[in-house]
């Protein structure tokens, strides 16, 4: 990424952030939050540790975004991303921790 591109991205992020602060989340915020949630969910699924609460949250976030409620969409997607990340952390933790539970 060149400096000019980087600068324009920074400006865009700044504008988004300002926009969010002033007027709540916009469609771009919702899309970004949903994409991040989806990526986290996928990582959990690949680890075979996905929670069954995550995909429904993403669906709800999409529905909220479609209905124009971007604040709600971002809120739900953030929760979904949190879950995806937590499930991946759980998979990593259990990769060793399960051994401590084995009946010997």
């Amino acid at each position: 990424m060149n400096i000019r591109k980087q600068a324009s991205v920074s400006v865009a992020v700044l504008l988004l952030a300002t926009g969010t602060a002033l007027a709540g989340a916009g469609t771009a915020d919702a899309d970004a939050a949903i994409a991040a949630a989806e990526a986290a969910r996928k990582a959990a699924a690949e680890a075979k540790f996905e929670w069954n609460t995550t995909a429904p949250l993403i669906e709800e976030a999409k529905a909220a975004a479609a209905a124009g409620d971007f604040d709600k969409a971002v809120d739900l997607a953030t929760k979904a991303k949190f879950q995806g990340d937590a499930a991946v952390a759980q998979a990593k933790h259990e990769a060793e921790a399960w051994k401590g539970a084995v009946i010997r």
Binding site: K79, F82, Q83, A86, A97, G100, A101
Partner: peptide, 13 residues
């Protein structure tokens, strides 16, 4: 207790 059965209510949201 690492092997507790109690769910981590905050940590797991």
């Amino acid at each position: 207790n690492p092997r507790t059965t109690m769910p981590p209510f905050g940590k797991h949201g």
